[in-house]
Design a binder for these strands. Structure first.
Lengths: 326, 326
DNA sequence: CAATTTTATTAAAACGGTTTACAAATTTTA
DNA sequence: TAAAATTTGTAAACCGTTTTAATAAAATTG
């Protein structure tokens, strides 16, 4: 009564063998209708639930994907997670989510845990660093999304990502079109996407025939602790009338600083779109990532790799949508 | 080479028995230092990782907790999840997160899945409805947080929750203190917390000697689809100069409507605090929940129940902090 | 109705670990 | 040095499920 019922208990109670119970419950055709009904009835009455650990060990499949995200508090990643859950769910897979808080140690731990739990494949938004993923993952298929391992590390994995260069170039060009003449940038120092976004910024200036100004690019690789100071430096000292902000978390600090500085005519742009930007007193130009499509693509590709381990790795680029809110 | 190494492979390569490998890797004291080192070296070289499925089936413990949240896009729940992950991690437990999108069907599915994966205990923020949790859970310990099952369903589980009545009463009183004379409410129709918050609203009016106005309370139980219309009804037709908003998602709609209606003197209050409220042109009075403490308490209590299944269920109320931003 | 084919069921062998009972080797004690 | 105690290693049992191969039962055929 107190112990969880096993397949053995069901078999005994229904007066059949364990094998028959297993077949009856897994929609196998090789079982008489009457038998199946009786088994189902008994299993239901006993509150039997198959132990997926035992099952997983036997069939060497868990129908579970692991997903590693660097920051569960970041809207972008929670939205992405939700879409991936959705896409995976439709394909009959469950998703085991783990958050690394941008820590390489936690990432390694999460990865190990997932492998020990025998996930069929893993989706990684990397925390950066020089991790040798191939060594950790062994034969388990994986795919990278948004955040890639550094380019100097060769990985045999798919990569799904938005075209950061193109999108950033668009945003900065839009700021110029809206009247900005001197556009600054505040950007993260480390991540993969940050590097690309800096390139996009430089390209936009180049396209408009504006020379790069080293006095402005000092903030192009900040460490997130001195964002407010950088904001002041660019907007007051350097008299920038346009500003591109590299990501979500930096944007928060910039906005905080802007409530102090009275600069109604500043042209502001940032990468990740947020619902609440609509409520701010100042319009912000942003890139809205095709999150649904991103999630669907990631799952599709990963499942394709599960089906065919020989499938050649590939980099897939999607386009972001630019939101102007003029 | 291509197959994942098992404990058998390690044993063979190290020239010892499987049991010795198991002991050596699980810090059992009963193994010679030299042997342990050799085993560790070999295991490492082979990239061996114990199969936690096999282990879980034998020891009948997975050191994993399940967590069910109704909306992964809601900041409040992602923050709560993060704290729970943290607290559980410190106690040596991992957390399997599943999102139900406020759907009872998905909730039941998630619950079943977790039980099949043999989680040691489950944390539930309920999607509402008349689910008979005890029947589904069987002997697996569980605890409810924030969202409770309806009061008419008896559950033998702990409940950890913020005092919604008190906090809402505070917020509404604060709106009155800030000069509002006629305070409306827009609230969800269904959830457990919504019911409590309505009570808090009514209490505040009662405490201030203001009679309840049925023309205002029409919006007290909305279905989230006509929030913008209700907002107009209360603020224009009913001429409310104060408004309490029941939750996060409703607040979003209200703010959207407020960008159209020009009402600079409206006193606005809502339940869940958001970081970006700081950037809005209008101050909002909110309740900030003690999320860290909430998460810690939930984990502590659940683990206590794991250790002692006889522990009596209990309801724990924590106080929210009121943020005024005058 | 016997022979054959088809369909249902079962017993036993996996799966990959942990644990137990026990034997062997080593050290301590008498 | 023999006996006892301790340390270390081995072999077998076990966890709950699926699957294989063998068997029993039922349905079809000649």
């Amino acid at each position: 009564m107190s112990e969880k019922p096993t397949i053995k208990d069901v078999a005994k109670a229904a007066g059949v063998s364990e094998a028959t119970v297993s077949r009856a419950l897994s929609h196998s055709p090789r079982v008489k209708r009457a038998t199946r009904q009786k088994v189902q009835e008994v299993a239901n009455r006993l509150g039997y639930r198959p132990n997926s650990l035992a099952r997983g060990i036997r069939v060497k499949q868990t129908h579970t994907l692991g997903m590693i995200i660097p920051d569960i508090l970041n809207d972008y990643f929670t939205q992405l997670t939700r879409e991936i859950e959705d896409a995976a769910g439709h394909a009959g897979y469950d998703v085991l989510i783990m958050n690394t808080d941008e820590s390489l140690v936690k990432e390694a731990h999460a990865l190990n845990l997932m492998l020990e739990k025998q996930v069929d494949g893993v989706i990684i938004a990397s925390a950066g660093g020089q991790t040798d993923y191939a060594r950790i993952l062994g034969t388990t298929p994986a795919i990278f999304v948004d955040r890639m391992p550094p380019a100097n590390i060769k990985t045999p994995y798919d990569r799904v990502i938005v075209d950061n260069v193109k999108a950033t170039c668009h945003i900065v060009s839009q700021l110029l079109a809206q009247g900005a003449t001197r556009v600054g940038i505040i950007n993260s120092a480390v991540s993969f996407t940050a590097t690309e976004r800096l390139a996009g910024y430089q390209q936009a200036l180049h396209d408009s025939g504006i020379a790069l100004d080293s006095a402005i690019e000092v903030a192009a690789r900040t460490d997130n602790s001195n964002v407010q100071q950088m904001t002041r430096q660019l907007l007051i000292n350097q008299k920038c009338d346009g500003l591109f902000v590299g990501d979500n978390t930096i944007m928060e600090e910039v906005l905080r600083k802007l409530t102090e500085l009275n600069l109604p005519h500043l042209q502001l742009g940032g990468f990740d779109d947020q619902m609440w930007f609509d409520f701010l007193p100042r319009p912000i130009v942003t890139a809205r990532q095709p999150i649904k499509q991103l999630g669907q693509t990631v799952v599709d590709r990963l499942l394709a790799h599960l089906a065919d381990p020989q499938l050649a790795p590939q980099e897939i680029r999607l386009d972001a949508q630019i939101i102007t809110r003029q």
